[in-house]
């Protein structure tokens, strides 16, 4: 199969959906003439013109709201946030407005909107530009949150998100844009709320998503080699709603769980999943749920501190060992 980069997979998803549906348009900072800050929208202005690929001023709250209003009128906007650090400015529009419209109007309104862009730590970008903010959105009923970890998923999930009748928050790890991977030429969709098994094993379930999944793969390799522990590795892909069926099936076999996320630990997606596993699958657990996450501090700039702050293969391997009662 051909290999393409994560950013190109997203680009294809946008182009295909824009071709398929005249109501789909892209709006955000630098998306048109500059081809996107991360080049995800490369060539789209040329192909679809300025009516459908729209550069905005630096006004996240304003253009998110324009996307929401346009969606209420039946269009299918894709709002690009240059990064999710800046989407914080639009949280009011998204949480107070987009997430509530269907419910408050008793189903009269719907907001078929995608808010997408770069998330997570990009590398030496310091505290205001290195945040994993999925919990902000996953917390609010009315929003779906999708976070692909591979080019193939990126494409199939974005196409699904654009067709979804409700607001979808679509977070792309900044460091994954250059990642190459196999992507089918023919059309495919990846459903909301379906996880993907990255590795089969009976010893310990590891649950992760987005960039942290790649740390988790390395951690699983490590314990396989060093300790003979076989990990059942789940890529959640959609963090809300998450795939309870796959998690439950796995945990009932392995009886041990490690949840790995890139961001902070408190009130996080990982915290919610751990809580659900501990409560719903209590009888199947042989050990407390282990967690690996960013250290609970704003991201420092200094290279050594940043590395120490992020999850790593070593920290994940240790967490797996703890879950398996192997001395670390």
């Amino acid at each position: 199969m051909r290999e393409i980069a994560f950013r190109q997979a997203l680009n294809e998803a946008l182009a295909e959906e824009m071709k398929r549906d005249e109501d789909v348009f892209l709006i955000g900072e630098e998306v048109a003439e500059y081809n996107g800050a991360y080049k995800v929208s490369k060539g789209l202005l040329d192909e679809f013109g300025a009516r459908r690929v729209i550069d905005t001023p630096i006004t996240e709250a304003g253009f998110a709201g324009i996307g929401i209003g346009a969606a209420m009128a039946g269009l299918r906007p894709v709002v690009e946030m240059m990064t999710f650090n800046f989407a914080i400015l639009a949280l009011d529009q998204i949480i107070n407005h987009a997430a509530k419209a269907r419910y408050m109007s008793d189903g009269q309104l719907s907001v078929p909107l995608v808010v997408r862009g770069a998330g997570g730590a990009g590398g030496s970008l310091a505290a205001q530009h290195s945040q994993s903010l999925e919990a902000q959105y996953a917390h609010a009923p009315g929003l779906k949150v999708m976070m692909p970890a591979t080019p193939k998923d990126a494409k199939g999930m974005l196409k699904t998100a654009i067709r979804d009748p409700d607001p979808v928050i679509f977070i792309e790890s900044e460091v994954l844009y250059g990642l190459n991977g196999e992507v089918p030429e023919e059309e495919y969709l990846i459903p909301v709320g379906k996880a993907d098994k990255k590795r089969e094993g009976d010893d310990c379930t590891v649950i992760s998503w987005s960039r942290a999944l790649h740390f988790a793969i390395q951690g699983a390799d490590k314990v396989a080699e060093d300790d003979g522990v076989e990990v059942d590795l789940i890529d959640l892909r959609t963090v809300r709603p998450f795939d309870r069926d796959m998690v439950a099936e796995s945990v009932k076999r392995t009886n041990r769980v490690v949840v790995v996320e890139e961001g902070w630990p408190f009130a996080s997606v990982g915290a919610s999943i751990s809580e659900w596993v501990s409560r719903e699958l209590f009888d199947w657990l042989d050990a407390p749920v282990e967690r690996v996450h960013q250290r609970d501090v704003p991201m420092p700039y200094a290279f050594n501190l940043e590395t120490a702050s992020l999850p790593s293969a070593d920290r994940i391997a240790d967490a797996i060992r703890r879950a398996c009662y192997i001395e670390v």
Binding site: S124, A126, A127, P300, Y301, A302, N304, L305
Partner: peptide, 13 residues
């Protein structure tokens, strides 16, 4: 990103 920096290396440029 060094310790004697004006924000102890935590802030950067």
């Amino acid at each position: 990103g060094k310790a004697p920096g004006c924000a102890g290396g935590k802030g950067g440029s």
